[in-house]
Simulated scan of single mutants.
Amino acid sequence: MVKFTCRLVTFICIVSGISLSAQEKKQFPNVSAVLQNIVPNTKTDSWILVHKSYGKDNIVKQSTVKEYESQSSGFNIGIADEDAFYYIVDFSTGKPEYITGLTALRKFVGKVDNIYDAAVFAAAEGYIIDEEFRDLAANYYQDKSNYYLDLGKLTSTECPYQKKHFTLTIPKSGETILNTKDNGSYIELYNKKCTNNPRLLKLEKKEEPKDEPKKSKPTRRK
């Protein structure tokens, strides 16, 4: 009986350890590595991933050597940079097809085959991998059924500039986001032009110095 109890306790500990290990948070690698590891829905290895920066094409992943035309626009699943973006050249139909938007990228992925595909699904809904704040907005964990992604989202470009972080639940081999949890803002920036800047409001409310009492003129004796 004692041996059975010990074995049962050991089994429970092992199962618990596996469960905890499965739910351990891991940080996303950089955006380039995420895009290199997506699994296309077309079951083809004939595609090229290009990172264009300051007008120059840099081939990040190339499974086929074919000619293609450089693109003037593209997508990003991280912090957007006006001078840099990614695009994909897909040769699955025999001729080059260019993927320059997040909606097209999601269609290229098709369904969620791994955590990197899940990140693409989230990006198509406006969420980002924020490499500057990995603990808050660039990590994930998983269980038997779902991926759980902690990602950021730009919620305001006006006053104040604001980013929030969310936890998204995306099913494995699924094609949708099951649940979204708002974890609050982690960046909130005001500039001098913001009329709702708390600092400016405090300065306006600050009491103005009171005028000193006027001194009475001395009376002259006649």
Rank of each mutant, 00 (worst) to 15 (best):
G174H: 06
G55C: 02
H51D: 08
G17P: 00
F166L: 02
P160K: 04
L136S: 13
S173I: 04
E132T: 13
R199K: 10
E82V: 05
I170S: 09
Y127E: 12
K43S: 04
D211I: 05
T5R: 08
V112Y: 12
L200M: 10
E131W: 08
N114K: 08
E24T: 15
L8C: 09
V120W: 14
T167L: 01
P209L: 07
G110I: 14
E125L: 13
E82S: 11
S21T: 07
I14V: 15
K181Q: 06
L8A: 14
L154Q: 12
A124P: 12
I129W: 06
W47E: 03
V65L: 08
Y147V: 10
L151T: 15
K26S: 14
A104V: 03
P198Q: 03
N197L: 03
A122M: 12
H165V: 14
Y140M: 06
A119M: 10
T100F: 02
E207I: 05
N196M: 05
R220C: 09
F11E: 01
F91H: 00
E131C: 04
S73M: 08
I177Q: 09
S145Y: 14
G110W: 11
Y161W: 15
K43N: 12
F28L: 15
K164Y: 08
I18S: 09
N114H: 08
D45V: 03
D83F: 14
S145E: 15
E207R: 12
Y116P: 03
D182H: 02
T176Y: 10
E208T: 07
R7D: 12
I48K: 02
I129M: 13
Q71M: 07
S73G: 00
D211L: 11
L105E: 05
K144P: 07
T176C: 01
V112S: 11
F75H: 02
T157R: 07
V112I: 15
Y190N: 02
T100R: 02
Y186M: 02
K205L: 10
E131P: 04
A119Y: 12
L203F: 06
S19L: 15
T219L: 14
G17E: 05
Y148G: 09
M1L: 11
P171W: 04
Q71P: 02
T155H: 06
S46D: 04
D113R: 11
R106V: 02
D135W: 10
D57N: 10
N139W: 03
F91Y: 07
A104L: 07
N76Q: 07
D211Y: 04
L203V: 03
I88H: 05
L35G: 09
I38N: 04
Q27A: 14
T5I: 11
D211N: 07
D135N: 13
K192G: 00
N114L: 09
Y116R: 05
V120H: 12
K52W: 02
D90R: 00
F75I: 06
L189K: 11
V112M: 14
K95H: 01
E204L: 14
F133I: 03
D117V: 11
